[in-house]
Every structure is written in structure tokens, then in C-alpha cells.
Amino acid sequence: MSDKKTITFALMDPPYENARSTTALRLINIAAQRGYNVNVFAYEGAVGLPFTKQSPHPNAVHGHDADEEDHPLPHVWIEAIAASAEAAGGKLDWINCGLCVDERGVHEALDFVRRGSPADLWQWAESSDNTLVIPTK
């Protein structure tokens, strides 16, 4: 087996709702920065993570405009992780569950995000060095 590892992650939580999403992206970022090939299968609400219509907003309670609020946008983080992977000699491959996307209407995703089904997760799990499923509660 080559030194370049391939690790698959399965995510289910939507953005902005649970620390699991943040931890998952931290893990994916670590693997990407090592130059690993990283597969992400987004299921259920996790298909909203690379949704490009997430937008910054002001916060009147804090008295911040949009720039001062600097609200985190997961799709921006994911794009940065993909760039880190490429710079380190690896690749971030991301598949959104197609039916989950249709149900939620989150079709506008980052360019490299592909549409797929749980069968893709099975194939990735078969071909990867390891797989971590991060289930929703």
C-alpha cells in the first residue's frame, strides 16, 4: 500500500446546528493538510455544508456590519480545505446525496461537489484505507 492514505468521512449534520460539523471539518482539514486523499460523503443535512448561497450578514444586536460580524461560512471553509489538499499533493472529493439535496433545495454547491447516492459511500468505504462515520444524534 502506498504512503498516500485515502480516508473517507460520512457526515450527516447540517451547518450551524451542532459542533459535530465543526469537528468534522477540523478532521478533514488535518487529513487534507497531510496530503491525504479525502473523500466526504454528505448525507441528510450535511449536504448544506458546501451550499454556496450561505451569505455573511450584519448583527444589529452586536452593532456589527457584515464585515465586522465576519460570520463563518462553511462553504468558504470547505473551499479552503480543498485548496490545502491540492497544495499538499492530495485531493478533496465531495459527494452530496442527491435526494437529500433535492429535498432541501440546496443545489448551488461548490464546483467540485458531485451528486451521488449511499452506494458511493459503500464504494469509498471499500476502497479507502479507513472510514469514519459521524452520525447525527
Binding site: K5, I7, T23, R26, L27, I30, A31, R34, Y36, D129, N130, L132
Partner: peptide
Amino acid sequence: LDIVVDHLANGS
């Protein structure tokens, strides 16, 4: 958190 990726890479 890196320890998790270490274990994934090492086949745990």
C-alpha cells in the same frame, strides 16, 4: 485532534 487522523491512517 490529529490523533484521530493518525488512528484512521494507521488502520485502527
